[in-house]
Design a protein around this nucleic acid. Structure first.
Length: 276
DNA sequence: CTCCAGGCTTTAG
DNA sequence: CTAAAGCATGGA
């Protein structure tokens, strides 16, 4: 086990975990256990620092993107002079965008569509327990996120029994395709081409493609618009369009390479009732 | 009870 | 091309 220490000002455990970008974490002791792919860490705050304890510290250094200077991102948010965004950035100052596994992000956000976060966590947890390799961390067992090969062996009915609802066929078909084709060729594509390719998978529409691109492929020029960001657009930016494609184009045009960070500030603040 | 959730696919116009 | 119905499930 190794420990990483990083100042909490730009690394809030609660804000980073509770801002809706990941679904595999649980309260433990004074912090949380976090699971990603087949790895685990224990994370907590102590004396103004955020501590990551893991036997895969290199993995989690990258996962939490600790090489990036978030003071520049926070100050960028304030520089736009948009009251709602300034408030959101202040509220979510400690948020960091995670660099998650690509396939885990794809499946997780397919499950997330038209769904509540507690239920999303439940479906993913049951999927890992049923199909993921058993691992051990700090004396407790946990399950890795399943491989596409393991997922591809199950029919749609299996995912419905896990509670996935109508997304059952999306999971089964996407798993079969990724298991056969792989995703290696996607990683080198520029963001617009990457999104275009993601849209060809069953169950991936514009919003899920944006989330997979942002959280799985590290594309911070993506601005996912869900029901909460649609409200932000109308209520806090006085937007008049009603289709989400226009909203995404508006925000990405405004924020460019910083889109993903600004989106996450706004999402977290809106959902927690900190705007308005 | 109805409404809604980090929306997508399918069908109709 | 855009618009709207239908979709599984469970919490508020």
């Amino acid at each position: 086990m190794n420990e990483i220490s990083y100042p909490s000002e730009y690394f809030s455990v609660k804000a980073t975990l509770e801002c809706g970008q990941l679904f595999r974490f649980e309260p433990y002791s004074v912090g949380y256990k976090v699971y990603s792919a087949d790895k685990a860490c224990y994370i907590y705050e102590k004396d103004g620092n955020t501590i990551i304890s893991s036997s895969d510290s290199d993995y989690f250094y990258n996962y939490f993107d600790l090489a990036r200077d978030y003071s520049a991102i926070y100050n960028k948010a304030l520089s736009y002079g948009i009251p709602a965004l300034s408030r959101a950035a202040e509220f979510g100052k400690g948020i960091r965008i995670l660099r998650q596994n690509e396939e885990e992000a794809i499946y997780s956000f397919i499950i997330s569509q038209n769904n509540h976060i507690p239920r999303i966590k439940g479906i993913i947890g049951r999927m890992c327990a049923a199909l993921g390799d058993e691992k051990s961390f700090m004396g407790e067992k946990f399950y890795a996120f399943p491989s596409s090969a393991a997922m591809a062996q199950k029919p749609a009915s299996f995912y419905k029994e896990l509670g996935a609802g109508y997304r059952d066929v999306f999971l089964a078909e996407t798993a079969r395709r990724i298991s056969g084709e792989g995703i290696a060729e996607l990683t080198s594509l520029p963001t617009p081409a990457l999104k275009q390719r993601l849209l060809t998978y069953k169950g991936i529409g514009p919003k899920v493609a944006d989330c997979a691109a942002l959280f799985g492929f590290g594309r911070t020029d993506s601005f996912p618009v869900d029901t909460w960001l649609a409200r932000v657009y109308a209520e806090d930016f006085s937007g008049t369009a009603t289709d989400r494609k226009t909203m995404t184009a508006f925000f990405e045009g405004l924020f460019g390479e910083y889109s993903g960070y600004m989106q996450q500030y706004l999402f977290y603040a809106k959902r927690e009732g900190a705007l308005k």
